[in-house]
Computed example of a mutant assay.
Amino acid sequence: MALPSPPLFIVFNASSGGADAEQASGRVGDLLTAAGRPHEIIRVRGDEELTRATVRASHAAREAHGAVVAAGGDGTLNAVAQVVWNADQVMGVLPQGTFNYFGRTHGMPTALDDSVAALLSAREQAVTVGLLGERVFLVNASVGLYPRLLEERESAKRRFGRRRVVALLSGLGTILRGGSVLTLELSVEGQTRVVRTRTLFVGNNELQLQEIGLRHAVDVEQGRLAAITLQPVSTLRTLWLLIRGALGRLDGAEGVDSFAFDQLVVRMRRRVRWVKVALDGEVLRMPPPLVFRTAPRPLRLLLPAAEAEEGSA
């Protein structure tokens, strides 16, 4: 006799408050009910509710020997992953964001019905995650230009809608306005160097790195992290680098430095109490020095059957 499928406790971020989010969460419930899968959907609206709801889902999943599922964009997935990873529990994803790098990397479809079907047949697989201090990141973490770009992008999305074209145009505007230059002391693998850069970007997602054309996507696939720094260059030069990235040809470009690592310590050359950082699209403040590293244990992630079999091969 087959064992009953573990229940799913779904944290569904409906922060937009629109009918689409309500319809999507209702559709997920209908599909799971039709499949006979035990579940509970916990709807949240905004970041303030998200962590509390995830902790509640984590406790319920532990008691029922189930899994916590994050339904939302990469920021929602990050918040859920932080709680689930700390508790060493199993996590599933239903990608509902703008870019969905984490879900797409691990074979989860972006169409809602297809992602629910994939979740129903998913198997547990160990997945490497990154840490900034004790904070988990699934896709990327950064300081400098990128956090400011994200803040201005979110502001534009609230005004004009959560569409890719809005994100791209907002990012272009941020770059055209320029920004300050950081002087950072980077310590990696026993060596320390000082760099001047507009941004330090740390990637943990091979799909995102592949799309901009960086060879270190292979290192990330093998469980390391990749760092990218952008030297201070003119606005026109920055735009050219942006175009190269959009074309998937950033590797080898003048002014761009990248390297793979397992641990990177970043110190600010001027004294500051905190640094604005971005983790998977969410901006927060953290005290220096900043320590980026691969997590000492993986995230236990539910992957579509084909992806799980490939990962264990």
Rank of each mutant, 00 (worst) to 15 (best):
A35P: 07
G36N: 09
R37H: 14
H39P: 08
H39G: 11
H39V: 11
E40S: 12
I41E: 07
I42H: 14
R43S: 15
V44L: 05
V44S: 04
G46C: 10
D47F: 15
L50D: 08
L50Y: 10
T51S: 13
R52I: 12
T54I: 04
V55H: 15
R56V: 13
A57G: 09
H59E: 15
A60W: 05
A60K: 10
A60M: 10
A60H: 05
A60C: 05
R62E: 14
R62W: 13
R62I: 13
E63S: 10
A64V: 04
A64F: 07
A64P: 01
H65F: 13
G66A: 12
A67P: 08
V68H: 06
V69A: 06
A70G: 10
G72K: 06
L77C: 13
V80R: 09
A81E: 05
A81F: 09
A81D: 06
Q82F: 00
V83I: 13
W85M: 04
W85P: 04
W85Y: 11
A87D: 15
A87T: 09
D88S: 12
Q89C: 13
Q89G: 15
Q89E: 15
V90C: 09
M91K: 02
M91R: 01
G92E: 04
G92V: 00
V93H: 04
G97C: 05
G97D: 01
F99V: 10
N100G: 02
N100L: 04
Y101V: 05
R104S: 11
T105C: 06
H106C: 04
G107P: 03
P109I: 06
A111K: 05
A111E: 11
L112N: 01
D114T: 01
S115W: 03
S115D: 01
V116H: 02
V116E: 01
A117P: 00
A117K: 02
L119R: 01
L119G: 01
L119M: 00
L120A: 04
L120V: 03
L120K: 02
S121C: 05
A122L: 02
A122M: 01
E124G: 05
Q125E: 11
A126K: 10
T128W: 11
G130K: 09
L131G: 06
L131Y: 07
L131K: 12
L132N: 05
L132E: 09
E134L: 04
V136S: 06
L138T: 10
L138W: 09
V139S: 13
V139P: 07
V143W: 12
L145G: 11
L145A: 15
Y146V: 08
L150C: 11
E152T: 08
R153L: 07
R153T: 13
R153I: 04
R153E: 00
A156P: 00
R159D: 05
R159K: 12
F160D: 00
R162I: 03
R164I: 11
V165D: 11
V165Q: 13
V165P: 00
V165I: 14
V166M: 03
